[in-house]
């Protein structure tokens, strides 16, 4: 059986290697991806159509906003699945965990405590910066959301899960995750109500005090905030479920 698997892997790998010769060279200007008129349109017209200097953000949140919406939904679904599998309410059918007593002592460590207290505000401000600065530099909702979620995880690691849940209780986490998706999809539906396609932001200039180009610019920010909500909440939710064995009590 092992030999069969090895042969299959080897055959697939050889096929892939053989097929890779048909790829255009890296950065080839004549390759189909570079010469097709759509990519030329993105490169030359993004700044005129959306006023976003960072082309990647514009393509991600505007031109293929539908795809990004469902990427956010994928993250949301993953978080819900982790909760559905791991979360255990009450004490019935509780499997004894490998380590009932927490590894770290109850009393928080002074050095770790002070460093965490110094760092968490900075991490959170940086996360907001990454979310809001996605128009100009690498960043955006997914990255900023992960950084923001990591700040809660850091608190849960340094103290315990209780301390982090005093900030974001489980219920609030889930509401936040749903809110993120609702903000994103709501913007799309709003565009439909105003008489344009789903997620076609330029029609929003009717309710925003800007022209159509700036309406697209600002809608991208709103959409990124929605994504950041979902990613933050799901990051922390997955961590707290995994680390506390679904009981949401001790954690590591």
């Amino acid at each position: 059986m092992k030999a069969l698997g090895f042969i299959a892997v080897l055959g697939t790998g050889l096929l892939l290697l053989a097929a890779s010769r048909d790829f255009p060279n890296w950065g080839d200007p004549d390759s189909p991806a570079s010469s097709y008129r759509l990519s030329r349109h993105f490169i030359t017209e993004t700044i005129n159509e959306t006023a976003v200097p960072n082309m990647v953000t514009a393509v991600l949140a505007d031109y293929r906003g539908y795809d990004t919406l469902f990427e956010a939904v994928v993250i949301f679904t993953a978080g819900i699945a982790v909760i559905g599998i791991l979360r255990r309410y009450g004490s019935r059918n509780s499997i004894p965990s490998a380590r009932e007593t927490p590894l770290t002592p109850k009393k928080p460590d002074l050095i770790v405590e002070s460093t965490v207290r110094l760092l968490i505000p900075i991490i959170q401000i940086f996360a907001l910066y990454v979310i809001a600065h996605g128009h100009h530099s690498p960043g955006g909702g997914f990255q900023g959301g992960v950084i923001f979620g990591a700040s809660f995880i850091l608190l849960a690691l340094a103290r315990d899960l209780k301390a982090a849940q005093n900030w974001v209780a489980e219920k609030r986490t889930l509401i936040l995750a749903c809110c993120g998706i609702l903000i994103y999809a709501g913007i799309g539906v709003l565009c439909q109500f105003l008489g344009d396609n789903f997620l076609d932001y330029q029609i929003l200039h009717r309710i925003l005090p800007t022209d159509p180009v700036m309406a697209r610019y600002h809608s991208i920010l709103v959409v990124e905030i929605g994504v950041a909500f979902t990613v933050t909440a799901i990051m922390f939710s997955i961590y707290s479920n995994l680390s506390s064995n679904g009981k949401m009590k001790e954690g590591i």
């Binding site: 770290t104 460093t115 760092l119």
Partner: peptide
């Protein structure tokens, strides 16, 4: 400069407790 010594400290303390 802030985080690296802290993580070393936390690891060593955890090892000591274990």
């Amino acid at each position: 400069m802030m985080t690296s010594p802290t993580s070393t400290h936390a690891l060593i303390k955890a090892g000591f407790m274990e």
